[in-house]
Design a protein around this nucleic acid. Structure first.
Lengths: 222, 222
DNA sequence: GCAAAAGTGTTATCCCTACACCCATGA
DNA sequence: TCATGGGTGTAGGGATAACACTTTTGC
């Protein structure tokens, strides 16, 4: 009990909702809890803030440690602080949303502890703490931002076809989109550039490859 | 030093950006600091989280204690946690935005300590901590939400004229609006109801009074 | 030649914007 | 009667939504 204060302090954690698209479905990364509370339940990756790191630094460190994910888009989501959300002590968690390109989403070898797994957003297991609520909010935010920002590009590799991009939007928004209107819209917002290359696939007409104008930034549109 | 932990804990505070409209200007409530650090500087109202209260409960308690404001609209804004944002110790602050109707915005009597004052958003004094940055973000959020929600109604009393409502939008958005287009828009979004009453003013045609359909809730539109 | 996705335009509708005059009142 | 804000409609332009066929390829 080496850390003492003149008034009570809560613990602070970050938890991260990492989305990716695998098998044409939106998935969330979960980690199996190996210690109480909620031992054996699935939970969001995350952990306690260290006093020498910033909040987003904590989120990135926890992801690197627990899931080996290092290069992803991260944004703060909301801070959850219900009094009884953790039975051990008062814990405030700053929740983040992250997006990772499917190709960069390898999972830790099965032997590794703790176990990690991608779950479809639509069929989540029973979750630890209030993590169900956090994921729901992140899902809403992703849906909303896909309509007025270039956030969806963070789910695709450096180069992609318009068909692949449309598929990402259809998965996020859970509805089919008109091909001609989608292409008109996405090309009109000045966020893409033709690479000059094509992707060839057996039995199909080759598709032009595109890349983001500014890969690292998520921009608001309209 | 009665509160001890096995690993270091940051302190957690809430800070609240309270907006109101006075003299046709958007104003923010500030409190003068009477103790170090930043003694004598102006700061946002706020303070340390107690372990038996929720985050928004903390915000409401601090407002009631420091400013006597009790009935207002409150929403979480963002969580700020830069390592060196407070020289005393590591402090994470969960920032809130609040809106109060001008008629409900009395100030604590001058004799009271600490001093509080409404400052125009456009001419803020030098602020303590990172409160300048917090206010800037809150201001952006208010502007954005005025365009796609009914948040602006929280700045008006129970009944108001369309002219008064338009004025609120013009102050928030810092631009003049077309009267006919504004009225068409605001009546089309189904958030207002005629009260049947009018407001009479000397030398003017009486204006119909309106009230929100659902006073307590902020709704998304479009 | 066939399956499978790539690629491409036009039309109708809705929404937003711009814009100017009369009305009701109290002094 | 005058000053002051209250109240009202229309027309044009731009964005959105609906909709179907041809192209290119590998097998």
């Amino acid at each position: 009990m080496a850390y003492c204060y003149t008034f009570p302090h809560p613990a602070v954690t970050t938890d991260i909702v990492v989305f990716t698209i695998i098998d044409d479905r939106l998935k969330v990364l979960l980690v199996e809890r190996v210690t109480p509370p909620f031992q054996g339940h699935w939970a969001l990756p995350g952990g306690f803030l260290q006093l020498h790191e910033n909040l987003d630094g904590c989120a990135r460190r926890e992801l690197a440690e627990k899931t080996d994910l290092t290069d992803l888009y991260l944004e703060q989501l909301y801070t959850f602080g219900r009094i009884d959300r953790d039975p051990r002590e008062r814990v405030i968690t700053v929740a983040y949303m992250a997006l990772v390109r499917a190709c960069n989403a390898p999972l830790r070898p099965d032997s590794g502890e703790p176990r990690t797994c991608w779950f479809p957003v639509k069929t989540l297991p029973r979750l630890a703490f209030d993590h169900q609520e956090i994921i729901q909010l992140a899902h809403q935010r992703l849906l909303a931002k896909s309509r007025y920002s270039t956030i969806a590009l963070q789910l695709l590799p450096a180069q992609f076809t318009l068909g692949e991009l449309q598929k990402v939007y259809e998965i996020i928004q859970d509805e089919t989109l008109d091909k001609r209107n989608f292409r008109k819209w996405v090309l009109s917002i000045q966020c893409l550039r033709e690479t000059g290359e094509v992707r060839r696939k057996a039995g199909r007409r080759p598709a032009k490859l595109y890349e983001p104008q500014r890969r690292e930034t998520v921009e608001f549109i309209r």
